[in-house]
Each structure stands twice: as structure tokens, then as C-alpha cells.
Design a protein around this nucleic acid. Structure first.
Lengths: 138, 138
DNA sequence: TTAAGTGCAAATCGTTTGCAGTTCG
DNA sequence: CGAACTGCAAACGATTTGCACTTAA
């Protein structure tokens, strides 16, 4: 068989990729691509298109460098982090602050429920939203 | 004070409204507005616009005549039903069949979690998706 | 007559994709 | 050179809305 094409050496991250990661490092709250794009637009140093922000975030998520969460309205939120198996969060619908929690009991119940009814390929969505104390006081 | 405008007598549901309800009666599975519109389009008897289907479903949901669920991809699914407090479902991502389950334990845990962290106005999303036995065998 | 119902086209909104130009190894 | 990277504009898909027209009490 012909030799597979030699894998390209990992390229050093571009300035824009670094900028997105840097923006993410700025907070452990979950933020949308659009929010991040706005933040980056503030910085006069960098000029980056919304499309690129989306693409970089998508790549970071693929690499598990960033984790994602669904916002209350269905938008995708990102933050750096926990490559560990996805956990669930109570997150502030306003600022994206996240409080993790476990659902061991529920997961067990649902696995059993699925088994009993013969459902396969189970996936779940368990998200809590609220207003954190800080955002509550405006 | 001036008399409030006399509330209009409840009008008899239009043919299209009846058609949508009838389509909903056809199954206890959750279906999207688009699916229902397609089904209605099959029937040569009725001609109804997608917009109207959306509007009628929205009204039915407001009146709690129909209940809604979020599909795995974020679309809104409808079925007639249970005016009782919303429950959660394990639903077939393919046919919309729904198996209800309770989350008393989780709800208790999360209420406590929210309280501990001072989060207010909590809302949650707990949805399970899977492939039902029937759909699994194609 | 007049509020309600309806349909079509256009608008929304977050996100993705086509495509052409740019950059870097 | 060629793969990666980028940006803009257009496409997307579910849903909503503006607006003009029809219908029925």
C-alpha cells in the first residue's frame, strides 16, 4: 500500500487562535461565540471575523480544550476546560457563571428506565438556569 | 368605570383549527409543526399554510390543550395533553414516542443547590432521547 | 362592521458553508 | 507550491412577523 501522506507538523497557533483562547482564559463563565467576538472587537489590537471565532471555538471544542453548554435560548456557550466527562451545570442565564452538580441518581434511574422500555442510544440534556446573586442585584 | 368590552362569544373552531387538533389526536407521539403540516398536506381535503399550523399550535399550547417538548435538535414538538404540571420524558428521537418519568429526587437536589448558591428564578431542562424498540428495527 | 383567521413573503437569529484571497511552512 | 487560515456574503432551518385579504358572528 502507498505510504500515507506524512502528517504535517503541528503548526503554531495563529494570532487569532491565541486571541480566542486568551479571551476564554479571561473568565471561567460560559460565553457565546458572539459575546466572545464582541469582546475581541473591543481590543483594538486584533481584528477577527465572527466566522473565524465560530470556527476556532468549534475546533477547540473538538479538541476538548473548550467545553460547551447550551444556553437557555439554545445558543452554544463555551469556556475553557474540564476535559473530564461532561458534567451538568446550574448556570446564570445572564453572566454564564456555572455551578457544577452531579446527577448520579438520576442517571441511574434513567438508564434503568431506558432499559425497561428497550430504548437504545440514550442521550440526555440536563441544564439548570437561574440568576446568580451578583446578577440578581443588577 | 366604563364597562369592559363585552367578551366575544367563543367562536366555533375553524376547519383548520379542527384539522390540526384532529391531526394531533392521531397519535400520542410528539411531532413538530412541520411534521404536522406535512401530514395535513397529505389530506387532499384541507389546505393549510405552515404559518397557520405554527399559530394554531402556539395557541393550543397557550391554552394548555397541547403540551410541548424540545426535540433533540432544538425544534419544538407538540402533542395533545396532560394539562398537569409538566413532566419529563424519554422520547424517541425518530418517532416522538414518549415515556414519562419523574425527577423528584433531582428536583429536590437542584432546588437545594440553587438555594445554597443563592441562585434565583430557577428553570430547568431535563430531556432524554433514545431510539425506541420499534424504530430500532427500522 | 369588524375582529379573527389565514397565507405569503420577508425578517430573525444563531450558526454554517461556499468561495476567493492570504499566509506560512 | 500547497495546506491552513480567514473573511465576506449567502445559505440554513425553525420560527415569527408584517401586511393585505378573506371570513364569519
Amino acid at each position: 500500500m502507498p505510504a500515507a501522506p506524512a502528517p504535517r507538523r503541528r503548526r503554531r497557533p495563529t494570532a487569532k487562535q491565541q486571541a480566542v483562547v486568551k479571551a476564554l482564559r479571561g473568565s471561567d463563565h460560559f460565553r457565546s461565540a458572539q459575546q466572545l467576538h464582541h469582546e475581541l472587537a473591543e481590543l483594538p489590537a486584533i481584528r477577527i471575523g465572527l466566522t473565524t471565532v465560530y470556527r476556532i471555538l468549534h475546533t477547540l471544542a473538538d479538541q476538548r480544550i473548550a467545553e460547551t453548554q447550551l444556553g437557555e435560548d439554545g445558543e452554544v456557550l463555551y469556556r475553557l476546560g474540564s476535559a473530564a466527562g461532561h458534567s451538568h451545570y446550574l448556570l446564570c442565564r445572564r453572566c454564564g457563571e456555572a455551578v457544577a452538580f452531579t446527577t448520579a441518581v438520576l442517571e441511574h434511574h434513567t438508564a434503568e428506565l431506558a432499559r425497561q422500555h428497550g430504548y437504545a442510544d440514550i442521550s440526555h440534556r440536563i441544564d439548570l438556569y437561574g440568576t446568580c446573586p451578583l446578577c440578581a442585584q443588577r
